[in-house]
Design a protein around this nucleic acid. Structure first.
Lengths: 225, 225
DNA sequence: AGGCTATTTATACACTTGCACAACAAGGCC
DNA sequence: GGCCTTGTTGTGCAAGTGTATAAATAGCCT
């Protein structure tokens, strides 16, 4: 079978063989390669040549799909943020479950793989480190953060409503901010030092902390499940 | 009076005037300039020439104090981590105060300036983004994190002891992890979007969340202060 | 004052980077 | 099959990078 990785069997000026891919596919591959390089080598190590090598193309091709490196990085970050918030929110769509169960499932989902992931954390931190200087990054993050917090606030409202409690807007906001912080903080700890925690431990800590924040009475013996 | 910033008043091959500084002072200045450049331009923008310009010297001098750029960055990160943990722990040394008051003061100190600071966050995120690949960075962070968490755990133990409660080691550890996450999460929110919160709001949220985590009964009307 | 030494400057160099552009060929269309 | 579009390659270039090293001078010692 043909081996594409054959460097130069002939001394003739042989050109590299290639295949034409669809535009969407190539853009996707380039963005993924960019994220890989940023995660592994940082922004400084993510050069056009390294990215192209990872994507299996040559550097010149990048300029055919992106105006410049800047735009490639921005699109890569957008893709990352989109994937992260999408995954996080997906844990909330559970058909038949009590609000409290949904909240617990949400916390659990955010404190286990694949959301707890060293590569994603590396990307998150690397890009966010530039948020001060790059308004585009700052804006993209702000959007994602507020979206996430609003989701949290909505579930909190449901949970408290189910408990016959009527928090005002300010209390609701504070609960959402605190719970968001709990999840973020535990997420960071898990990503940076996952091996320090036993499986499920972070999620257990998170659920207890969140329920304490909301003043929910602890369940006695898990009545039905 | 003599102006040191005069570029070249003569067409003669004039050399730049300079002053000899003490070794410690120069190293300190170079490290500070490095942190400034990393915070503003990221790791890729922190070039030797930019750093030297910021420090008011020429690029070649850096090699006189540091073996290479790598070592300069590592020392800069060590200095940053040292300063951060030092500041954070400093909030715990209060002579006459109840454990609960000390805990509240600790949370408050960590959720206000100068610990809530966009520049420091930028540095923290930028360096941590490389922790996956750079074992030196990972180790330095791990040390700082565990030190911080142990401080938290010690105060938590005091607070609970004052409340006649006897948590076991596992519970204590979980409390420390959760409280650490709360502080970290709120710290990030404050650094990234400080203007979204009114002054003292984050600290108030943090204190309430921490006390809820520990199951402390809320104070009624602040009895004495 | 005059020399000595170590700090500091300035220049050189090999290498990498992002970008521009010309040559080329893959694959659809007639 | 033969052509034509355009995705793709390869090369070149100017700017910038970290490092090496020689030249200069600031400030102390006597």
């Amino acid at each position: 079978m043909p081996d594409a990785a054959d460097p130069a069997p002939m001394n003739a000026p042989s050109r590299r063989k290639f295949r034409r891919e669809g535009e969407e596919r190539r853009r996707q591959d380039l963005i993924e390669a960019t994220l890989d390089c940023v995660a592994e080598y940082g922004l400084q190590g993510a050069t056009l040549r390294t990215i192209a090598l990872r994507a299996g193309v040559t550097a010149g091709l990048i300029r055919h799909y992106f105006p410049g490196k800047e735009e490639l990085l921005q699109e890569a970050y957008s893709a990352l943020v989109g994937r992260m918030t999408e995954q996080a929110k997906a844990a909330l769509v559970m058909g038949d479950a009590s609000p409290r169960q949904r909240l617990a499932a949400f916390v659990t989902a955010n404190l286990n793989a694949p959301i707890i992931d060293a590569r994603v954390f590396s990307l998150w931190a690397t890009f966010l480190g530039r948020a001060n200087a790059d308004l585009t990054l700052a804006h993209a993050h702000r959007e994602g953060y507020l979206g996430f917090r609003n989701e949290v606030e909505a579930v909190v409202a449901e949970v408290l409503a189910a408990e016959q409690r009527r928090p005002d807007a300010s209390q609701l906001r504070h609960h959402a901010i605190a719970i968001n912080a709990i999840i973020d903080g535990l997420w960071i700890e898990g990503c940076l030092a996952g091996e320090m925690f036993s499986p499920g431990e972070l999620a257990a800590i998170g659920i207890k902390a969140v329920e304490a924040e909301l003043g929910l009475a602890p369940l006695e013996h898990d009545p039905e499940k």
